[in-house]
Computed example of a mutant assay.
Amino acid sequence: MSTSLSQDIAPLLPYLRRYARALAGSQKSGDAYVRACLQALVSDQSIIKTEDGIKIGLYRLFHVLWNATVAPPADADGSSSIFEQTAQQRLSTLAPESRQTLLLSTLEGFSIPDTARIIDKSADEVSQLITDAIDEIDRQTKTNVLVIEDEPLISMDLTQIVESLGHSVTQVARTASEAVSAAKTQAPGLVLADIQLADGSSGIDAVKEILANMSVPVIFITSFPERLLTGERPEPTFLITKPFNPNTVKAGISQALFFAEPEAVAV
């Protein structure tokens, strides 16, 4: 890969990894897809089309390679993770292209026209795929949600979004200790967590303690995504940047619950 192309792609990789992890349901499998994409690009630079910009070209290349792969990369022991197994069950009722379109246009912030360029569809087709994906996933995944957020207006917005999807907010926690206590009182089916909380405590620490006692999908919603997208340690599968678009949060919730264990959803 030329130095110029490598330099153009490097800043985009944390976000491509985020997209891949959301599609695959785990950091390990998502990163494996990204590595495969980069290896293909190193072998032949001509496979990336940049007439619409390097970012659209990179995601379009990833999209082609993803759809050409018959099965997701396996974990180290040769088996798929529980999240991937659950995703495969739900894929029987949700077209994969709808899910990809939903994530591209909401989680990754591509416009409808740009999403259409990436997946080679019309704008009308993209809009319909997004609607179909949200409707189908929401029908499958009603649950209780714990919101960890210290800003009242933001927590109100998140509560409204959660409830608009038919879920229930069990509690809004403003500190790490409140969050841990709330999770112990009533196990959530999903956690929405900020990183930096009111008393200086950490949403990351709260989530770690919660996950030590139960299995639950987590979405981090933060103004500091760079603190989690370092590439140097395990990173969250689902990450949304503030300020957020409500549709981005809806997509993240739907996608996180899409990969949650079925028995963990209806709590």
Rank of each mutant, 00 (worst) to 15 (best):
D138H: 12
T93Q: 14
V267A: 11
L153W: 05
K250H: 07
I210S: 05
H63K: 06
L16S: 01
Y15G: 05
Q88L: 12
D205N: 13
F238A: 06
H167N: 11
F258A: 00
I161E: 06
I240N: 07
S177H: 12
I9R: 07
V180A: 07
S122Q: 04
G189P: 01
V207P: 05
T230R: 10
A40Q: 09
D8W: 04
E232G: 03
D138L: 10
I48T: 03
M214W: 07
C37K: 00
E232Q: 14
S215T: 15
L65G: 00
V42L: 13
A123G: 05
S98A: 13
S79R: 15
D199S: 09
I9C: 08
Q140I: 03
E261V: 12
G203D: 08
L23C: 06
L16Y: 01
L153V: 11
S127T: 10
R99W: 13
Q39K: 14
P11D: 02
K184E: 13
Q255F: 00
F62E: 03
E97N: 15
E261A: 12
M156V: 07
L41E: 01
L197Y: 01
R21Q: 06
G231M: 10
D135S: 15
K55V: 07
S6R: 13
A179T: 05
S168E: 12
N144F: 03
A24D: 10
L104N: 06
G203T: 04
S168A: 10
L257Q: 01
G189W: 01
S111Q: 02
P113T: 06
V64C: 02
L153S: 12
E226P: 07
V207F: 04
F259T: 06
T86L: 07
E209Q: 15
T222C: 07
I119H: 07
T222R: 05
R139W: 04
S201Q: 08
G25V: 04
Y59C: 02
Y19G: 01
T237C: 11
I253E: 03
S92T: 15
A183N: 05
T241C: 12
I54Y: 06
R35N: 11
D150N: 09
R35S: 13
L165F: 04
F83R: 15
L211N: 11
P96V: 05
T50C: 08
A266W: 08
L16A: 07
E108W: 02
S46F: 02
I56W: 05
V180D: 03
N67V: 04
I253V: 12
I130K: 15
S98T: 09
Q255Y: 00
L94S: 11
G166W: 09
S164F: 08
G189N: 00
I154W: 03
I154V: 15
D75H: 13
E235K: 06
I134Y: 06
Q160E: 15
S79M: 14
A24T: 02
L153T: 13
Q140N: 03
S2A: 10
T143S: 00
T141Y: 00
D135Q: 14
S215G: 09
P236K: 07
